[in-house]
Computed example of a mutant assay.
Amino acid sequence: MAKIARMYHERGMRQAEIAAELHVSQPRVSRLLKRAGEVGIVRTTVSLPSGVHTDLEDALEARFGLTEAVVVDAGGADDDVTPALGAAAAVYLETTLTGGDTVGISSWSATLLAAVESMRPSRTPVVTTVVQVVGGVGDPRVQMQATRLIGMFAENTGAAPVFMPAPGMLGTVSARDSLVADPTVQAVMDVWSKLTMVLVGIGSLEPSPLLRASGNALADADLAVLRDAGAVGDICLRFFDGAGEPVKSAVDDRVIGITADQLHQVQRRVAVAGGANKHSAIRAVLAGGWITVLITDVDEARRLLAD
């Protein structure tokens, strides 16, 4: 066994060559090589290159029941992990979108915008339709970011874009109900039941600069109500508490966006989020089973596993 193992692993000889030189059958060479591994003559070690964190990814998947975790090194920039997360998300999308998907994307996410900006255009269509899953109309100076997010994703994947012609947050329930009754808005919402994948960011209770500038952020009074109810973050303006349970409030009735129940019914739910300021929200999302795939930074991965 030792002789055959050295010939195969150290000298790089093929099994047929070993069999000929030692005057034994090739099946016997194969059996002895397998046995050499079983008894410890041959041991396999995997040396991870710098910047690869498959050990953390495996641990996150096992701990939180994720289908997949992607962990990226942000170079110690815990205050701004957006560029690194965007690059990692772009690679994930390029390698896992293979055709036929109907993808939903949340509108007001700088991280998702960084992802689509980093994507390389596919030579053939890999997505059928991409649709907004939360209202994208807002301040004209900022709205172009939401439009650009969907447009660039469609251009990179060959998808047909479906835009939501409404804001994400309305001032009253009656205003929201009036817009939802519009056939154009209803046609977009009908696509949500056909989603095979959704791509979202994870928001902390305080709105991101992009969301605040869009005019779709909650008023301070609404945030106070949610905070008192235990909310720690949101996905698509659907808020949840520290255990990942949806926080029911009057705010829900003023949102034009995919509901928590609709989101959970999508087979592949991908979130791109990281940084210390998002830790409580990311941990809650994992606890509540909101997502199946997490793309995050190495420091946040370690924080999650340390809890």
Rank of each mutant, 00 (worst) to 15 (best):
G171N: 13
G171P: 05
G171Q: 08
T172R: 01
T172K: 02
V173S: 03
V173H: 09
V173T: 10
S174N: 13
S174A: 15
S174G: 07
S174Y: 04
S174H: 13
A175H: 06
A175N: 05
A175F: 02
R176P: 09
R176F: 10
R176I: 09
D177L: 11
D177A: 12
D177S: 11
S178N: 04
S178G: 01
S178F: 07
S178A: 14
L179M: 14
L179K: 01
L179N: 03
L179Q: 09
L179R: 13
L179A: 14
V180K: 03
V180L: 14
V180E: 13
A181H: 09
A181L: 07
A181F: 00
A181D: 14
A181M: 08
D182V: 01
D182S: 03
D182K: 00
D182M: 05
P183L: 09
P183I: 13
P183T: 10
P183Q: 11
P183A: 12
T184M: 04
T184I: 10
T184V: 15
T184N: 08
T184G: 06
V185H: 05
V185S: 07
V185N: 03
V185Q: 03
V185F: 04
Q186D: 14
Q186T: 08
Q186K: 12
Q186W: 03
A187D: 11
A187W: 05
A187E: 13
A187T: 10
A187G: 06
A187Q: 15
A187Y: 05
M189N: 05
M189Q: 13
M189G: 01
M189E: 13
D190I: 01
D190C: 01
D190E: 15
D190Y: 06
V191T: 14
V191N: 02
V191F: 02
V191P: 00
W192K: 09
W192V: 12
W192L: 07
W192F: 11
W192P: 12
S193N: 10
S193V: 11
S193C: 04
K194L: 10
K194D: 12
K194C: 08
L195M: 05
L195F: 03
L195E: 06
L195W: 12
L195N: 09
L195K: 07
T196Y: 06
T196C: 02
T196W: 03
T196F: 04
T196N: 08
T196G: 14
M197D: 12
M197V: 10
M197C: 09
V198A: 12
V198M: 08
V198P: 08
L199Y: 11
L199A: 04
L199N: 07
V200E: 12
V200A: 11
G201H: 10
G201M: 09
I202G: 06
I202H: 05
I202T: 07
I202A: 01
G203I: 08
G203W: 04
G203R: 01
S204K: 03
S204M: 00
S204T: 07
L205E: 04
L205K: 08
L205M: 11
L205T: 12
L205Q: 08
L205P: 06
E206L: 02
E206H: 06
E206D: 15
E206V: 10
P207L: 05
P207W: 04
P207M: 02
P207D: 03
